Amino acid sequence: GLPEGWEMRFTVDGIPYFVDHNRRTTTYIDPRTG
């Protein structure tokens, strides 16, 4: 799974992105792969 505090969501286009609730940021880069 994802690191603690992270969540995976999808855009309206079906593109996955990642929400970091710890820092309240979003990124398209998987936190597991950097």
Rank of each mutant, 00 (worst) to 15 (best):
G1T: 11
G1H: 11
G1N: 11
G1A: 15
L2M: 08
L2G: 03
L2V: 03
L2E: 00
P3E: 04
P3D: 06
P3S: 04
P3R: 05
P3L: 04
P3W: 04
E4Y: 11
E4A: 12
E4F: 10
E4G: 10
E4H: 12
G5M: 04
G5F: 05
G5Y: 04
W6S: 03
W6L: 02
W6N: 01
W6K: 01
W6E: 01
W6P: 01
W6V: 07
E7L: 04
E7A: 05
E7D: 05
E7G: 02
E7I: 07
M8I: 10
M8K: 06
M8T: 04
R9K: 11
R9Q: 07
R9M: 09
F10A: 05
F10Q: 07
F10I: 10
F10G: 01
F10N: 04
F10S: 03
F10D: 01
F10R: 06
T11N: 10
T11Y: 02
T11G: 10
T11M: 02
V12Y: 12
V12M: 12
V12K: 14
V12L: 12
V12I: 13
D13T: 13
D13G: 13
D13E: 14
D13P: 01
D13W: 10
D13M: 11
D13V: 09
G14E: 05
G14K: 08
G14M: 08
G14W: 07
G14H: 08
I15D: 06
I15P: 03
I15M: 10
I15N: 06
I15Y: 10
P16L: 09
P16I: 11
P16N: 02
Y17G: 00
Y17A: 02
Y17T: 03
Y17D: 02
Y17K: 02
F18A: 00
F18T: 00
F18Q: 01
F18N: 01
V19A: 03
V19M: 08
V19G: 01
V19S: 03
V19I: 14
D20F: 04
D20T: 04
D20S: 05
D20Q: 02
D20R: 02
D20K: 03
D20G: 00
H21F: 08
H21A: 07
H21E: 08
N22D: 12
N22T: 11
N22I: 15
R23W: 09
R23E: 14
R23T: 15
R23V: 08
R23S: 15
R24I: 08
R24E: 15
R24N: 15
R24A: 15
T25W: 14
T25L: 15
T25N: 09
T25Y: 15
T25P: 04
T26W: 15
T27Q: 08
T27K: 04
T27W: 06
Y28R: 07
Y28L: 11
Y28T: 09
Y28V: 08
I29T: 12
I29M: 11
I29D: 10
I29R: 12
D30T: 00
D30V: 00
D30E: 03
D30R: 00
D30Y: 00
P31Q: 06
P31S: 02
P31C: 11
P31V: 02
R32W: 07
R32I: 07
R32F: 06
R32T: 07
T33S: 12
T33I: 13
T33L: 14
G34R: 07
G34F: 13
G34Y: 12
G34D: 14
G34S: 14
G34Q: 14
G34T: 14
